[in-house]
Design a protein around this nucleic acid. Structure first.
Length: 211
DNA sequence: GCAAAGATTTGCT
DNA sequence: GCAAATCTTTGCC
């Protein structure tokens, strides 16, 4: 179960002293995409240059660019040859909040600069629990880009990795819903309850909650 | 080689 | 509540 697991960005893995830029988040929202037969999945056209990593062994990161602006983090699941993956839609920030905020603002600042010179943006403050409340925001807060595709998330020495929740932490209450933003896939895929969230958690993606 | 649409977020009306 | 921003990938000519 990925819900409750930790997503960790650690610039200096293996170090005894925690790095000040170390970022930790607790996964509270995911979506499953099961392979070529799933018309909502990137694997629906078969194996391509973009999704090749999905056909590889599990535990590997698959990062794609959506709408030309946002990177989204997926975790490859199931065995080699099966193009299944889980999209990490939201995490609850636990540590390194300042770094997450800085990484987010840096991206938005770059976007504005590309559009043209304008005044100071002042970067309005976002609530702490919303720093990674959405697929694109998770990648932004953790500094994840397509360059991270193929990274082994289960390697304890990786700068980007997953860890299980502490054993003394109670398992979260899980709710199932239909997936978000895949209307193009048609039935039965749009109605499949393959989005999983921690019940009532405030860090689940915002607008998505209403749909 | 070109046109179309997308696993989103933000800001304005 | 709606539309823009933005670019990669896919599909067809």
């Amino acid at each position: 179960m990925l819900l409750g697991a930790r997503l960790i960005r650690d610039p200096d893995p293996g170090s005894v002293v925690a790095d000040p830029d170390r970022r930790v988040g607790r996964i509270v929202e995911v979506e499953a995409y099961i392979g070529e037969q799933d018309l909502a999945s990137h694997a629906r056209f078969g194996r391509t240059a973009r999704n090749a990593v999905m056909y590889g062994p599990p535990g590997i990161a698959y990062v794609y660019l959506v709408y030309g602006m946002y990177d989204c983090l997926n975790i490859v699941t199931e065995t080699e040859g099966s193009a299944a993956a889980v999209l990490v839609r939201a995490v609850e920030p636990l540590a390194g909040l300042a770094s997450m905020r800085a990484a987010r603002q840096q991206l938005t600042a770059e976007r504005r600069r590309a559009r043209g010179p304008d005044g100071v943006t002042a970067g309005r403050g976002v609530a702490d629990h919303r720093l990674a409340s959405g697929p694109g925001l998770v990648a932004a807060a953790f500094g994840i880009t397509r360059a991270d595709t193929g990274r082994d998330l289960c390697d304890p020495m990786s700068t980007l990795r997953l860890e299980a929740a502490p054993p003394d932490e109670p398992a979260p209450a899980v709710a199932e819903t239909r997936r978000i933003g895949i209307d193009y896939a048609g039935e039965p895929w749009t109605s499949r309850p393959w989005r999983f969230v921690v019940t009532g958690h405030r860090s689940v993606s915002g607008p998505a909650r209403l749909r």
